[in-house]
Simulated assay, not measured.
Amino acid sequence: MKVVVTIISLVLCQAALAGTSALPPADEAAAFKAAGFKQHGKQWKSCKDSSASYVPGAIDQVQDINGDGRPEAVITEGSSACFGDTGVGYTLVSKQADGSWEVMSRGVGILIVQKTKGKDGWPDLEIGGPGFCFPVERWNGSEYKVIGKQYEGKPCKR
């Protein structure tokens, strides 16, 4: 398990160091705040971890995943103290028509946007992590709910 956590932390660290998000600074700050992060110097944090392995919040992906013409952002943060053996947490936020940002999904794991879709064009989400059978969430019009589990695109049971 420690190898998986180390690899995930390394990936998150590389993503955080790779550069800035594709969002303008005001939207970036609003997205982090909507996700429950607070700015500490140049870092965004939601987890109270000060260990050397902690990886601060980073905007991992920005794209319009539901086809409404407005961006969604996946915010990640790394910490085994806050996220257990998985070592990473995610928050999916969406820019609304009024310019505000709203949390669509959050949890422990690595969010992988799927091609299959739920209500209003929202894609299903696979939540990866250690192991071989991962939950898949679908938007029902008001929230993402687990609809099953899959591994490499095929249904599975834990």
Rank of each mutant, 00 (worst) to 15 (best):
V4M: 09
V4S: 15
V5E: 12
V5Q: 08
V5H: 11
T6L: 15
T6Q: 15
S9L: 15
L10E: 11
V11I: 15
L12C: 10
L12K: 03
C13K: 11
C13P: 03
Q14N: 04
G19C: 10
T20W: 09
S21Q: 11
S21K: 13
P25V: 14
A26V: 07
A26Q: 13
E28Q: 14
A31S: 06
F32Q: 08
A34F: 14
A35D: 08
G36F: 09
K42G: 05
K42S: 09
W44D: 07
K45A: 04
K45V: 03
C47F: 08
C47D: 12
C47R: 07
C47K: 07
K48Y: 04
S50G: 15
S53T: 00
P56V: 02
P56D: 06
A58Q: 06
D60H: 08
D60W: 02
D60I: 02
Q61M: 13
V62T: 09
Q63N: 06
D64I: 12
I65Q: 06
G67K: 06
G67T: 06
D68Q: 12
G69F: 00
G69P: 00
G69W: 02
R70M: 09
P71Q: 13
A73F: 01
V74F: 09
V74P: 00
V74D: 02
E77P: 00
E77V: 07
G78C: 11
S80A: 13
F83K: 13
G84E: 04
G84N: 10
T86I: 13
G87W: 02
G89E: 05
L92R: 01
S94K: 09
S94M: 15
S94Q: 13
K95L: 01
K95M: 08
Q96I: 06
Q96M: 08
G99D: 12
S100C: 11
V103F: 14
M104L: 14
M104V: 08
S105Q: 15
S105F: 15
G107I: 12
I110S: 03
I110P: 02
I110Y: 12
I110D: 09
I112M: 12
V113N: 05
V113G: 01
Q114G: 06
K115H: 10
T116P: 11
T116I: 07
K117H: 06
K117E: 13
K119A: 15
D120W: 04
W122I: 07
D124F: 03
L125H: 03
E126S: 13
I127T: 00
I127D: 01
G129I: 11
P130C: 02
P130K: 05
G131Y: 03
G131Q: 03
G131L: 08
F132G: 10
F132P: 04
F132L: 09
F134T: 05
P135M: 04
P135S: 04
V136W: 02
V136H: 01
N140R: 14
E143I: 04
V146A: 05
V146N: 06
I147C: 14
G148A: 15
K149A: 03
G153Y: 10
P155C: 08
P155H: 02
K157A: 09
